[in-house]
Design a protein around this nucleic acid. Structure first.
Lengths: 350, 350
DNA sequence: TTTAGCACTTGCTCTCTACGAGTGCTAATA
DNA sequence: TATTAGCACTCGTAGAGAGCAAGTGCTAAA
């Protein structure tokens, strides 16, 4: 069922207008618009057909039309024109990159903040947790009663804890601890820790075995510390400015999505994992009036996280998509083959 | 202006009832209550006087009475009876402690979650950032192209970054780097880094000076990384269930408080720093309908953070205060002189 | 195929009324 | 003198009805 040019024009106009005003769009309103040189009656007929085809719907009999999810989808997939970020907007987005932050986490947080401000919707970023198998352990002497226990994981990520103990420690003893750990615990994940490995570890410590329990406890904690998804959310209250959420119940539903961050992250990641590019979701997740634009962040072929925007279903997709795309393009440039641009990074701190 | 026993009783009954129902309390409603063996007319007279004294007010002429901030204050400061946590509730709170987490941060997060669930209000925890003067630096070899750069701060806190470089590194070279850093950068905070120290540092690196820029950049980042307050917030949506926030604008104001976490943390800490114990705030911070109960967490004499509850001004202070107090008492037991209970900690991971 | 015209539907806003809750005051009572 | 019953009064709320505006679908003419 291909749409005629005129139907496309009308659908686009309806959605553009609805996005702008939030009011159902009537036939009369469109007569003035754009290059539609037909009367309201004609438009009415077309709209009625668009309704029959599932692109539009009426909130009630005597109201104008409102896009359906299907309508939005076709709009996003081709009807809408491209949004050109203004110089102002580019400046804001570039600032995120200029203030060179080394970690992608921070970078995404700033971007998310900037995008939320720019678009006036809620924006979020999620960083996927990395695996948690210990590969190697190191210890570092801090002072007589404390040391740093460092765990290097198989995926290259690093975790550490500052361990405080009553007995006194010294660098040499700590070396023994690290060696013993590496001999017995390397490669384990939380479930792999067996009684045997524990006993072996204690044995290897020899005279220092008094510290074993504390160390084991810390390691257990580190392995288990569900190095959870890192979630940042920006501009939640912005949602509440839109009439879609002016009912507290609706507002509650929307905000509840962000309430449990871990849960939210998992939802987001499960939608991002298989995707290579930007996706748009209309009225999902018990939020019939919300839309979500989701952009996975892929670095060196791995999906490391996602950044996205949530707004009313009638949000300004053009602008949101343009912003997210601009961000992800540049994040790619900055992080792909991270090691290469050491020189560039190497500016003096001012 | 001392309150007569009967006035106290009436004030208490009014507030109890208002907290329970959220409805303005009329004189008739109280006749049945408690040990008030007087007619509604008498109560009416008393209430009218309580209003004149500033403890009660009327939303409008023909409505019942509602407590003022002053009314709540006297209520909290003595009128209300103590709340006894139920076995159920104690169990929930104890679970927080039983699942021994080493870091206070996590502990407070769990507690905040538990308290939010128990009370059905929003609960939050804030951990104060620690100072950020570098005291000592360490490096740790990870692999040929990366190492861990560790910064030990004057207050004993530790920060580190995983640094990736293009050139190849080895443990010995990293030792040189650490030594050079310690010689030139020890004791600095972000503003202290001078051109001179940078030059000195580069000189000390000798043949390895190629790495200087990267290292400096990371250190600059670490020093500046506003190791911000760690904020956890739980149950924001719960607020929206109360009629006080059924208006979206009010809801927005309430939620906005939590929007900028750093800002929120600072507000909270500025209210907690000088306090030794629990404080209650009624209708502050542009939130005329909200109440906040704040409990600073003090360990070894230092205010390390705070935990609190925000609810409608007519929240169940008894219960909230009891829960917070129970938590803080036990946190004290667990963390005061942390090092002492090494044995106790030393249970085997199961 | 398009358009003008018109009857019809529906939600919204305004006004009016009735009602109920609660008060303050007055006069009677213990 | 403190308390109470009684009553007029105030005010907010809920509901009914009227009028209005927006927008539709249908019909008949261009």
């Amino acid at each position: 069922m291909e749409l005629s040019e005129r139907k496309k024009k009308i659908l686009k106009s309806v959605i553009d207008s609805y996005i702008r005003t939030g009011e159902p769009v009537g036939s009369k309103l469109l007569t003035g618009t754009a290059d539609l040189q037909v009367s309201s009656a004609t438009i009415r007929n077309e709209m009625s057909e668009l309704e029959r085809m599932g692109f539009l719907e009426q909130p009630h009999a005597s109201a104008g039309r409102v896009p359906t999810a299907e309508g939005y989808r076709t709009y996003v997939n081709g009807l809408m024109e491209q949004y050109l970020l203004s110089l102002e907007e580019l400046k804001v987005l570039n600032e995120v990159f200029n203030y060179k932050v080394s970690e992608i986490e921070r970078l995404m947080e700033s971007a998310s903040h900037a995008i939320s401000e720019m678009t006036n919707y809620t924006s979020f970023s999620v960083i996927r947790p990395s695996g948690r198998n210990a590969q190697r352990f190191e210890t570092l002497y801090i002072d007589e009663h404390s040391f740093l226990l460092i765990m290097i994981c198989t995926d290259g990520s690093i975790r550490n804890r500052h361990v405080k103990v009553r007995m006194s420690v010294d660098p040499e003893m700590l070396k023994t601890v690290a060696d013993a750990l590496n001999a017995t615990m390397s490669g384990v994940c939380s479930e792999d820790v067996t009684l045997q490995s524990v006993l072996e570890f204690e044995e290897l410590l020899g005279t220092h075995s008094g510290i074993a329990a504390t160390v084991l406890r810390v390691i257990y904690d580190m392995l288990n510390s569900t190095d959870s998804e890192k979630v940042h959310i920006d501009g939640v209250t912005k949602l509440l400015s839109y009439p879609e959420f002016s009912d507290v119940e609706k507002a509650k539903d929307a905000i509840a999505l962000f309430e449990d961050r871990r849960d939210f992250a998992q939802k987001i990641m499960s939608r991002s994992n298989d995707e290579k590019g930007l996706t748009v979701h209309f009225g999902e997740a018990d939020l019939p009036d919300a839309g979500i634009v989701l952009q996975p962040i892929i670095i060196n072929g791995k999906t490391v996280g996602a950044i996205g925007v949530m707004g009313p279903k009638r949000m300004n997709y053009k602008k949101v998509i343009a912003s997210l795309q601009y961000f992800v393009d540049n994040v790619g440039k900055q992080f792909e083959g991270e090691i290469k641009n050491e020189q560039e990074h190497g500016k003096k701190p001012e």
